[in-house]
């Protein structure tokens, strides 16, 4: 390794010597040029809108109103933070995340290991598990709405399996709505995490498994001491992204329950609060303050989570 890197250094330095002094500048220019599309898109669609939201959150801006927009200082933040609806929504978000992040990561890992086997037909299963990712979630929600009807397909199955003992009204009964939403969410997105982990699994060097097998390691020992350490970075990435995505819970809870976020606020989320405040009630200023708070909450969670990131 050492000699190789020295060689590279030598090559690079000789290249620099061959093309002085415009070289570094042109390399820098190329770097700027290559990153430009991504930077411009991030600025236009992420940074500028977020900056606008930050500014608007200190005003009483409406979606439409003949009244002038005024600065209101921290009023929006005070109103939001003293609103029980916001805290209820945050609580639902946390419940949803606490359940879906481990379950979905575990399920994705299990599916990835399964479809990674060199068996006939594993490609078919890979495709099947991944297909829901290609569906529009709002369209899939409408289909699930029909499946979850009290006399729909799922309950017909439940009736047979439980001999009629358990056929809940999934979406109207506040005790079961979150469960129904979690089921649909798992179905809809587990394939995404599975694909990332599948790619990671295929990157673990075969020689490590061979060495472990020679040492007499069982399947579980190989999984525990070769596979998991081998994909730890991707696992961490999957947990991070699942956490962030789970906080964005919106389409399903907007479309499926008898009212957005219902019944009885059982599936209300911060996204529902934000869109409801900004668009349904037209209070853009207050909606923006929810957006800013939402950003801070997710940022804090992500920063906190990074403390557990595996070392290189």
């Amino acid at each position: 390794m050492h000699t190789v890197s020295t060689d590279v250094d030598t090559v690079t330095s000789s290249a620099r010597q061959a093309k002085p002094p415009g070289g570094p500048r042109s390399v820098r220019r190329a770097g700027i040029l290559f990153s430009l599309p991504a930077v411009v898109l991030l600025l236009v669609f992420m940074v500028v809108p977020f900056g606008t939201a930050l500014v608007l959150s200190f005003t009483n801006r409406k979606l439409l109103s003949p009244l002038p927009t005024r600065w209101v200082g921290l009023d929006n933040y005070r109103d939001v933070l003293t609103d029980s609806g916001f805290w209820g929504a945050l609580q639902n978000n946390i419940i949803f995340s606490v359940i879906t992040v481990p379950v979905q990561t575990g399920l994705a890992l299990m599916l990835a290991v399964l479809v990674n086997q060199k068996l006939r037909g594993s490609v078919v299963y890979r495709t099947l598990y991944f297909i829901p990712i290609t569906f529009s979630l709002s369209a899939a929600s409408v289909i699930w709405l029909v499946l979850l009807n009290p006399s729909g397909l799922l309950n017909t199955v439940m009736e047979t399996v439980t001999f009629g003992a358990f056929t809940p009204d999934w979406l109207n009964d506040p005790r079961y709505t979150m469960t129904a939403i979690i089921l649909v969410s798992l179905w809809a997105s587990v394939g995404f995490q599975m694909v990332i982990l599948l790619a990671a699994l295929q990157d673990v060097p075969k020689s490590l498994y061979e060495a472990a097998a020679v040492d007499g390691a069982s399947w579980w020992q190989q999984f525990r001491h070769v596979t998991v350490p081998g994909i730890r970075h991707q696992l961490f990435f999957v947990v991070t992204i699942t956490l962030i995505l789970s906080f964005r819970l919106f389409d399903q809870v907007w479309i499926m329950p008898p009212r957005p976020g219902g019944p009885l606020d059982a599936t209300n989320t911060i996204m529902v609060e934000m869109v409801g405040t900004g668009f349904e009630r037209g209070q853009i200023g207050r909606g923006s303050s929810i957006a800013v708070l939402f950003f801070l909450i997710v940022l804090l969670l992500t920063v906190f989570q990074r403390r557990f990131e595996p070392a290189d």
Binding site: F50, T52, A53, V275, A291, V298
Partner: peptide, 14 residues
């Protein structure tokens, strides 16, 4: 990544 995922969701309201 956080900005992209979260702000992307918030973008509409601005």
């Amino acid at each position: 990544a956080v900005i992209a995922l979260v702000a992307g969701a918030c973008g509409g309201s601005d």
